[in-house]
Nucleic acid binder design. Structure first.
Length: 645
RNA sequence: GCCACUGUAGCUCAGCUGGUAGAGCAACUGAUUCGUAAUCAGUAGGUCGUAGGUUCAAGUCCUAUCAGUGGCUCCA
């Protein structure tokens, strides 16, 4: 507790310091600086932690005020719009009980309601109109600290039984605060804006049924999502960004570029068309070449295996709901959802010496997992897929160097795709874990040591590991800033034990190998989805289904075009001839929409000089190049998997 | 699996409170032989996701079911 006489020192962004009495609020600080600032202030930050304008300060530190113009204002605005949403719904339907809003207000807000029927699109309009009305009332947001008893009485009186439950979730000793604007009051830790008018533009986005506290066993509530900004212009920009993401949607591009399709005959299992298959196979080939460099042996294993194997591996007990089963000769069989057990069988197939280790098996086998119908999505979450999956069997001593090599390999692969911005996370021992704490400590130690040795920055997800071992996850950021988890390196002490794997050590005794699960792109299907959205369908040259298209200016130059086509095709370039009797502009437009890297225009001038006029997808005309020169340059770029001419 | 929404021509979509389907693009045919993002004209194309039901009458209303979308939950 601070005494009223205690002085705090606030360091302002410009370096000045300001002495204030403990218990002073940021709003009072703003007022002491100037009336204009006090009016525009929306929130504050003390030592990097966001504080509400009305929250009494109790510590010194670096201090900043946010105004309606600060980029940070959005958090305050959306959090407050959330209360306005709840207020609007309560005003329209007083019998509704409110639950709670959202933690993260970086983009959206949401509120859950107990309401006997779902909200309809018409309700949205009504609610939005009511929210606008509330904003116009321009009520001030007020913060109030209550004792637990007072809070209990308040929400009992209001008939908010869900709120009473939420109140029970707050640990003893924590300050309980409520925020009011007008007649609406909500249990909330803030922070909020000063006045409703600081919320400039609101929009409701979507509705959903959700379980109370996220537990499937609980009753279902109705959730409404929305977003809000200080200015209408910012809202428009946000909606435009959503539009941009929609234009990149891999499902749409998959259709437009004729890459893949889905069919109800096999829900959530993609059919790759010839063009999509080119990309898929190129990805596979790329990975395969890396395997050669890093000492992996590629294996091929069966698709359908006796259920006994899955009992041995533990998948039957832990993973059965996600597996497909069949039956033959009176035996129960399972379609493989993972490659690891089959690799254990190959390892165990003969007596292994420590001299054989590490052994690295890579597998592009097809996997099938039953994903619940509501969770599948395009290529991102499918039921039939393949991973760039490998399992490394090694000794305890080799773990660290194997992890280092795997990390190297992963980074090398990402660099090829231009994924430079990435996040690495180490997940440690979860509550439900097998194996001794010492073993876990050692395993986690070697993962961290491997990353430290490479001077890689990483975060730690305490308790986020799998029950059988700790792991490293790799997340990359795509062109529009979204994060995707792709690669993983996981240590596994469980499976070698279950399959009684062993090797003969230098000491002549039998030892248990360690198994490392490792994926780089993750599932090829999903990676392709990510790549399509990252590149907006404009694949790098080496992956482009059609790398160049020859466009005769008129049908008169069809024969010359065909000659060029053959010459390039002979050189291994994926090339097409567009011999249709259309005008050049039309064919260019079409090639451009198909995102073909090079358009080779051929007409009289080119035929004369045995050249092609090169137009790039990315814009810019390269002028006339001889067929041989274009061919050489393209081949070179393709083989280096680099950018474009 | 749960909540909401969607399903009409190859694609994108229109079709008001029920009165037996329409546009643009694509396809096909013909004309045009063309120089860097859409040449013109014509033709053909749909048991309105599927199955029931209500009705004199269903793309439109009801029920079931399949698939998809956005969320929730799940993702050893």
């Amino acid at each position: 507790m601070t005494t009223a006489t205690e002085l705090l020192t606030l360091t302002l962004p410009n370096g000045d310091t300001k002495e204030v009495q403990a218990g002073t609020t940021p709003l009072q600080v703003a007022e002491s600086i100037g009336p204009r600032l006090a009016k525009d202030a929306i929130g504050a930050e003390l030592d990097g932690k966001v504080v509400d304008l009305r929250h009494p300060l109790s510590a010194s530190g670096s201090f900043r005020l946010f105004t309606t113009k600060s980029p940070e204002a959005g958090e305050f605005i959306r959090h407050s719009a959330e209360h306005v949403l709840a207020d609007a719904v309560k005003r329209l339907w007083p019998e509704v009980e409110i639950d709670a809003g959202r933690q993260d207000h970086s983009e959206k807000y949401q509120y859950d309601f107990r309401f006997p029927r779902p909200f309809s699109p018409e309700d949205f309009e009504t609610i939005e109109a009511k929210m606008v009305e509330i904003l116009a009332e321009n009520a001030t947001f007020e913060r109030q600290e209550l004792s637990r008893e007072e809070a209990k009485d308040l929400f009992t009186e209001l008939g908010e039984t869900l709120k009473l439950e939420r109140l029970g979730d707050i640990p003893e000793g924590e300050t309980i605060t409520v925020y009011r604007h007008g007649r609406f009051v909500d249990l909330c830790r803030g922070p909020h804006v000063q006045r409703a008018s600081q919320i400039g533009a609101i929009k409701l986005l979507e509705a959903s049924g959700v379980y109370f506290r996220g537990d499937e066993a609980n009753e279902m509530l109705q959730r409404i999502y929305g977003t809000a900004f200080g200015k209408a212009k910012e809202l428009d920009e946000y909606l435009q960004r959503i539009e941009e993401a929609r234009a990149r949607d891999h499902r749409r591009l998959g259709q437009d570029l004729d890459l893949f399709s889905f069919n109800p005959s096999a829900p959530a299992a993609p059919f790759f068309h010839p063009k999509g298959a080119v990309v898929y196979k190129e990805l596979e080939q790329f990975i395969r070449e890396r395997y050669a460099a890093y000492g992996y042996g590629e294996v091929l294993t069966p698709q359908i295996l006796d259920v006994e194997l899955w009992k041995t591996s533990g998948h039957y007990d832990n993973y059965r709901e996600a597996m497909f089963f069949t039956e033959a000769d009176g035996r129960e069989l399972a379609v493989k959802p993972m490659n690891c057990p089959t690799h254990c069988l190959i390892f165990a197939q003969r007596l292994r010496s420590y001299r054989d280790l590490p052994i690295r098996y890579a597998d592009f086998g097809r996997l099938h997992r039953y994903e619940r119908s509501g969770v599948t999505s395009g290529l991102m979450r499918v039921r039939s897929f393949c991973q760039d999956d490998a399992h490394i069997f090694c000794t305890d001593d080799q773990v660290e160097s194997e992890v280092v090599a795997a990390v190297h390999l992963i980074l090398e692969v990402y660099r090829t795709f231009g994924f430079d911005d990435m996040e690495i996370e180490v997940s440690t021992r979860p509550e439900k874990a097998i194996g001794s704490p010492e073993m876990w400590d050692r395993a986690e130690g070697s993962l961290k040591a491997a990353l430290d040795g490479q001077e890689m920055a990483y975060g730690v997800d305490e308790g986020g590991g799998a029950f059988y071992g700790p792991k490293i996850d790799f997340k990359v950021k795509d062109a529009i800033g979204r994060q995707w988890q792709l690669g993983t390196v996981q240590l596994d002490y469980q499976l070698p034990q279950r399959f009684s794997l062993r090797y003969v050590g230098a000491d002549g005794d039998e030892h248990r190998p360690v198994m490392i699960h490792r994926a780089m792109l993750g599932s090829l299907e999903r990676f392709m989805g990510v790549l399509i959205e990252h590149t907006a369908g404009a694949f790098p040259l080496w992956l482009a289904p059609v790398q160049a298209v020859i466009l005769p200016v008129s049908e008169k130059f069809k024969d010359y075009g065909e000659g060029v086509r053959r010459q390039l095709a002979e050189n291994g370039i994926r090339v097409e001839l567009d011999a249709r009797g259309e005008k050049l502009g039309y064919k260019i437009r079409e090639a451009q929409l198909q995102k073909i890297p090079y358009m080779l225009v051929v007409g009289g001038r080119e035929e004369e000089s045995e050249t092609v006029a090169v137009r790039r997808r990315a814009g810019g005309d390269l002028g006339a190049l001889s067929v041989a020169e274009f061919s050489e340059r393209a081949k070179d770029l393709i083989s280096k998997r680099s950018g474009e001419l």
